[in-house]
Simulated scan of single mutants.
Amino acid sequence: MRSDHRTLALTVVVGGFLLGFVDFVWIKSVPYPFAELGNSTATWAVAAFAFGYWVRSGRVRPALGAAVLLVVAVPSYYLAATLVQGDDLSVVWAPTSLVWMVFGVLAGVVFGTGGTWAREKGWRQVVGIALPAAVFFEEAARFARRANDPNYPSGSGWNVAIDVALGVLVVVLIGRTSRQRALALAVALPLAMTIFIGFAVAGGY
């Protein structure tokens, strides 16, 4: 059991560091529109989901571990920005970073738990499978809203298509039957709307 705890802790710390660091490098090195997958709240939420799915069961470990993973990823992201493009390291403890860490705790608990639910049965399994699709669909809705905004790069339609495709793909891969997949996609839509409203209330972070 002690070895399992050590493996879990190591996975959380290393995984969080890699998520933040690789995320920034991805944004800098991959061309648009795929670069937006690095600058994506959905990508981080799905990383927390994947962690919970890997843990498989339990309540505390997947939720706490996924939360820590996302919190570690935030300073790692800004450390990469310092090393790659010379940003000021003080941004690591700036108020914006702390806000993202708080969001990381919330997203980690929700999506880490969702990852374990996807392995259960009944309504929890459906909701668990729906969660990663919902966060991709919500992000697609935000890209669609920006389509005519001159402050954002043109070609947002590609981002909408990529996010919708990834949302459907993750349901196809995780769902075990056609019925599960259909139910999960149906549940993902109201969940996406809930997340969309949450972002609007939070001021668009």
Results as ranks from 00 to 15, higher is better:
Leu185Trp: 03
Trp100Pro: 00
Ala80Val: 15
Leu10Cys: 05
Gly112Ala: 14
Leu70Gln: 12
Tyr205Pro: 06
Met101Phe: 11
Val170Gln: 00
Ala165Met: 08
Ser40Thr: 14
Gly20Leu: 12
Arg119Lys: 08
Val102Asn: 04
Ile27Arg: 13
Thr96Arg: 05
Val25Leu: 10
Val14Pro: 08
Ala182Tyr: 15
Ala165Asn: 09
Arg181Ser: 08
Arg179His: 14
Gly115Gln: 14
Trp93Tyr: 14
Gln85Leu: 02
Ala192Asn: 08
Val164Ala: 11
Asn159Leu: 08
Ala9Pro: 00
Arg61Gln: 14
Ser76Asn: 06
Ser178Trp: 11
Ala165Pro: 00
Phe103Thr: 01
Ser154Tyr: 08
Val164Gln: 03
Ala48Trp: 00
Gly15Gln: 11
Val127Pro: 03
Met101Ser: 02
Tyr78Gln: 05
Arg176His: 12
Ala141Glu: 03
Val135Lys: 01
Val160Gln: 15
Val110Cys: 09
Leu10Glu: 05
Ala42Gln: 01
Thr41Asn: 03
Arg124Thr: 13
Arg124Glu: 10
Val168Leu: 15
Phe21Ala: 09
Asp87Leu: 05
Gly38Val: 09
Phe137Ala: 15
Thr113Asn: 05
Thr43Gln: 01
Pro153Trp: 03
Val171Gln: 09
Ile174Glu: 13
Val171Thr: 10
Arg59Val: 14
Glu138Phe: 02
Ala48Tyr: 04
Pro132Cys: 15
Phe199Pro: 00
Thr177Lys: 00
Val91Leu: 09
Thr41Ile: 02
Leu131Arg: 06
Phe137Ile: 09
Leu8Arg: 10
Val60Leu: 06
Val168Gln: 05
Glu36Arg: 02
Ser3Phe: 11
Val92Pro: 01
Gly198Val: 06
Ser97Pro: 14
